[in-house]
């Protein structure tokens, strides 16, 4: 019954450095993540995990290969349409939280809605609800610098879910957190996945975190080395 939330078909990404040296960060990756899936991407440093996440999140375009988000071929979209796609369907959680230090937790969470044209009152209302859902109803007006690392990452998760995305990408979300905060954040992501059916893809170095995922994709040298829940990308009619 599941539909693909995101599909990568033989995607490569190479960087040309000054002097003509070409770095092949991804060398042909095919991958399909369905709505409601929960997948962990693991692999050694420099293997191309972040590069893949940026492509799946439409922050970057593949050098070759095709990318489909909710059935739409991304290469057919211009930058403005891509921005809209990100805004409406994708949520991001970063290792370094990426909160703006000068504004309150509420304002940080409300930010994606600004670029959707939501009214200010509704933005604040929805940001508040999102913050309450991550257990930060008592920290609405705090600035990021007045929050602990775990709290900051929960604010970031609230920001990712406030726009009700179908796909949530988290690049090492627990990388900067102590064990307990990490566990809290993982619980939140899992809850988001089970309660709201959001597809979650997370990159992690933590084996315990990876073990909790329902699917593990291992990357090495820009290629998928193993995938314990692979769908057939070529034949989309086949149910997983």
């Amino acid at each position: 019954m599941s539909e693909p939330a995101v599909e990568a078909i033989d995607v490569t990404r190479s960087y040309e450095l000054e002097g003509g040296v070409v770095v092949n960060a991804l060398r042909g990756v095919s991958l399909r993540i369905d709505t409601g899936e929960y997948a962990a991407i693991i692999g050694p440093s420099g293997s191309g995990k972040s590069t893949l996440m940026h492509l799946l999140g439409c922050l970057d375009r593949p050098t070759t290969g095709a990318l489909r988000i909710a059935g739409t071929d991304v290469s057919s979209l211009d930058d403005t349409q891509l921005a809209q796609l990100r805004n409406e369907t994708i949520g991001f959680v970063f290792q370094s939280f990426q909160l703006l230090p000068r504004i309150s937790a509420t304002a940080n969470v409300a930010m994606p809605l600004v670029y959707r044209g939501t009214s200010r009152a509704e933005r604040i209302e929805r940001a508040r609800t999102a913050l309450e859902s991550v257990g930060l109803g008592h920290r609405l007006d705090h600035r990021p610098t007045q929050l602990s690392g775990g709290e900051q990452q929960r604010v970031a998760i609230a920001r990712a879910l406030v726009s009700q995305p179908t796909l949530l990408l988290a690049d090492e979300p627990t990388g900067n957190l102590d064990t307990q905060s990490g566990v809290d954040v993982m619980h939140l992501l899992e809850q988001l996945n089970t309660d709201h059916g959001v597809a979650v893809i997370l990159v992690t170095h933590d084996h315990e975190v990876a073990a909790r995922a329902r699917r593990r994709i291992r990357i090495r040298d820009g290629l998928i080395e193993s995938d314990d829940g692979a769908h057939s990308v070529a034949d989309q009619s086949v149910a997983p």
Binding site: L59, D79, T80, A83, R86, N87, E88, Q98, Y115
Partner: peptide, 16 residues
């Protein structure tokens, strides 16, 4: 720079 990158990731268009 980071703020700009973040805003774009969250859906800001070039024009915004």
């Amino acid at each position: 720079t980071r703020e700009i990158g973040l805003r774009k990731a969250l859906g800001a268009r070039q024009r915004d």
